[in-house]
């Protein structure tokens, strides 16, 4: 754990949140503070400790392969911020590799 400065712009890009310069400054400082608190974890010896992703150890919870009713199309499309016919419409997608 290092206390290096977070590249807030990069992280915000990954998270798809537009930030103003002022926000970059403010969040950068706040996140830096938080990371300093969080870095206290470095004092714990966790080398031989397994990670806990979930506290209750269930296994093999599976659903039977049986069809259940879908939502009606009106219900689905009624919420669309923008639609075209039966499709959701989004602005131009920049090609991704």
């Amino acid at each position: 754990m290092s206390s290096e400065k977070i590249d807030v712009r990069y992280v915000a890009k990954l998270a798809r949140i537009a930030l103003t310069d002022e926000e970059v400054e403010r969040f950068g400082a706040q996140l830096g503070d938080l990371l300093e608190h969080v870095n206290a974890l470095g004092a714990l010896d966790t080398s031989a400790v397994p990670a806990t992703a979930q506290v209750v150890e269930s296994r093999n919870v599976e659903r039977p392969d049986t069809v259940v009713p879908c939502l009606s199309r009106e219900t689905v499309m009624a919420q669309a911020p923008q639609r075209q016919g039966a499709f959701f419409r989004v602005p131009r997608i920049i090609a991704e590799g």
């Binding site: 075209q84 499709f87 959701f88 419409r89 989004v90 131009r92 997608i93 090609a95």
Partner: peptide
Amino acid sequence: RIAGSAYSLVDF
């Protein structure tokens, strides 16, 4: 094609 398209329509 995606290149040059003005918008996209999505079906889930």
